[in-house]
Design a protein around this nucleic acid. Structure first.
Lengths: 193, 193
DNA sequence: GTCTATACGCTGATAGAC
DNA sequence: GTCTATCAGCGTATAGAC
């Protein structure tokens, strides 16, 4: 069993840490298996033992954030009122992006990710659920456009170097504010601020 | 003279048309010189005669839109009042994106473009000018975040397949509306609608 | 001025020895 | 679990035919 994936192993963890670092610095297409191997002090084939495919490495790197995204989506779907669903998914997305700025940079910058999200059915389904949370069931053009702009804008924000100097709390606050404005959502009265 | 570029030539135009089409379908990294050559019915080296580099092809493909972007930027900078500058650059960006949806998809989706914009000094300067138009001289965190979200969100919108079915006029109208909302800009009184 | 033939070093990926 | 050897394909490059 355990052809690949699943099982831990220290070598595997080291590899993922190195890969995240290189991906963030050079992009996914800009990072070769050779670079990862060199950084680890092994050969390319040794990397291929841990992961059969470069795409597998990418998936493993983004997996933790994807799990969080799933949880946030489920929490939002559990809300009864549309305003609460919107508020939950928006603040969840904001937190996720602020906490994973390097990862956001990777996901936004590389078409390899786009390929992943569109090809993998489970990810496509998650994408659809988030779209439904943001746009609601009524899919008029205006709402759809706001939805695409808010999700796209949030993604991009994590990557942009012009915002690198802004601390997490400030970024989180203004990101959520701007996101609410795009979706015409009033700040919740019961919120702590 | 005329090592490359500059001069027209029918072959050159055909190549650019094919390249734009392939880039839009498969992305830049996903399009090989071989694919372009095959589509034209020539060899890879023939492509290499017209353009010494793949990057040169990319630059030539995005050049017309980049010229338009420069014109829009200059028009906006010529406005006296900040609200007018904002209005001009926003509606200019919206028009550009609506008129070049396929191109927007390419530019947003591929890191090769990111590399172009950050490496080429002239493009970096243009980017800075647009940022200044949107953010103004005061660079508080909130304005900066709105700026990044509006430019990023607009870019992404051109690429998103969920909006492919929306006609140009509707897209333009709601895009501008959402952009104004992000930047807290009231619609101009003297506007025709 | 436009192309073909050929080759270089790199990539992601595979098979099989140790 | 890691290695060597090898593969086809990539972007790039030159020499030379027409």
């Amino acid at each position: 069993m355990a052809r690949t994936s699943q099982r831990s192993g220290a070598a595997r963890e080291r590899l993922l840490a190195v890969a995240l670092d290189l991906f963030a610095r050079y992009g996914i297409s800009g990072t070769s298996l050779q670079m990862i191997a060199d950084e680890l002090g092994v050969t390319k084939a040794a990397v291929y033992y841990q992961f059969q495919t470069k795409e597998e490495i990418v998936r493993a790197v983004i997996a933790p954030a994807l799990d969080d995204l799933t949880k946030v989506t489920e929490a939002a779907e559990a809300q009864r009122r549309r305003a609460d669903r919107l508020e939950t998914i928006l603040s969840g997305l904001v937190d996720l992006i602020v906490n994973n700025r390097r990862l956001a940079a990777i996901m936004q910058a590389d078409p390899a990710i786009g390929h992943l999200t569109t090809s993998h059915p489970a990810m496509q389904a998650l994408y659809d659920r988030i779209t439904r949370l943001l746009a609601g069931s009524g899919s008029d053009a205006e709402t759809l456009i706001s939805t695409v702009m808010v999700s796209g804008g949030l993604m991009i924000v994590g990557a942009d170097p012009r915002l690198a100097h802004i601390d997490d709390d400030t970024l989180r606050r203004h990101l959520l504010g701007t996101a609410r404005r795009i979706m015409r959502l009033r700040p919740p009265a019961h919120s702590k601020r």
